[in-house]
Write a protein that binds this DNA or RNA. Structure first.
Lengths: 213, 213
DNA sequence: TAGATTGTTAATCGATTAACAATC
DNA sequence: TAGATTGTTAATCGATTAACAATC
């Protein structure tokens, strides 16, 4: 295995789907998986899969493909999913609760130490194994557990105010599920999930198909 | 206004955020908004905003920018959000319920005529204004309301089976929130939302920052 | 008028794809 | 051995960015 290199954003976005597939292959007892097979499953070009996997530094074997165990390990390492990241979630509504329930994130190194909400009825409960606290406790729990990452699933109207609170507490990475473009100090990284853009893409696909014929 | 043209996928994905911003400008009573201002707000390059907006066919005025009302109308038209799209949602869990609660989709032409779930306790209820039916009723409701679009928020283990059911009922567009790569007949368009890839991007951003210093 | 902004054409940049020798 | 697959280098493709005349 060679050292890891830089990768383009599209490559980074494809890595989790490779990981998912390779883990399935592992579960089936396979020792190797070829770029050709991965490409076929995901409807990509084999050359693209090979190029993408090159960033992990894993060396494949001609005729066999890539060693499954090594590949899983190397993708985890590349994405920094080989270590624990303490995280909190703010806004324990339906979306927040859904995210708390995703077992997958835990396997990718995300360690949710707490969820925060305004709703008195939720506070003190356990949502999918994560305790719910009042917003006022964000600061001390972030400090106490050395939390760097926060998932933001509050209503848009509260997004910026909560983000400010998070930054003040020491959060340096925000996974933003609101439709608000957050204003954050330099050094704080953010990943915005925009459902509307997915809907836009689907809409255009539908339009293109109907105007085709 | 010139006729609409083709657009690249990145452009399509950015259009909803422009729309959001321009609607805010409209709410503030503004008549025009310049590409420069939009770019500043979204941390993009002004030239990119101008290029993107060109696909809508809206002609801007030098010194003033683009006419707000026309732009809103034209983006809607471009994305086919200027007409109603009957849709159903399958899997009324936390994620599904969250999506049913997004008022925004309704304003973008999505008309959710029903949600479907296995859970007896949910059936017959109204979730955020959408009635919940048993899975068995998918077929007749899709036919009855001429539904083409379905949102898939079922557990991964049921994703392919439900997708098959949807296609059989006449669904031709699937917004797939599961982590399953669906096998679908030609003519059925699909948009896959992959939360893991967002988490991967955030993770790499965190890694790059920490290795920088 | 002066100058900010648009819209178009050209240049650059970066990602994808092709070609092919190396290899197990 | 024969042939499928890797990995590298080069070519292509497409998106972003630059330059600048037109314009209100």
């Amino acid at each position: 295995m060679k050292s890891t290199r830089l990768a383009s954003l599209p490559t980074i976005k494809r890595l989790p789907s490779y990981l998912h597939l390779v883990e399935n292959a592992q579960a089936e007892g396979k020792e190797y998986i070829s770029g050709t097979v991965i490409a076929e499953e995901l409807e990509l070009e084999p050359i693209q899969v090979r190029k993408d996997l090159a960033v992990t530094g894993v060396v494949g074997k001609p005729r066999l493909g890539f060693p499954v165990d090594q590949l899983i390990q190397a993708i985890h390492t590349f994405l920094h999913w080989d270590r624990d990241h303490n995280a909190i979630l703010v806004g324990a509504g339906n979306l927040g609760t859904a995210l708390l329930g995703y077992r997958e994130f835990r396997r990718r190194g995300m360690n949710l130490v707490g969820a925060f909400d305004l709703d008195e009825k939720k506070i003190g409960k356990d949502l999918n194994g994560t305790p719910v606290y009042p917003l006022g406790r964000i600061h001390d729990i972030v400090i106490e557990s050395a939390v760097r990452m926060a998932i933001l699933t509050v209503p848009s109207s509260h997004a910026q105010a909560v983000a400010d609170l998070l930054v003040k507490a020491g959060i340096t990475a925000i996974w933003n599920f609101t439709n608000v473009k957050l204003k954050l100090p330099p050094g704080v990284v953010v990943q915005k999930e925009d459902l509307s853009s997915g809907y836009a893409v689907l809409s255009v696909k539908m339009r293109l198909r109907s105007t085709d014929r």
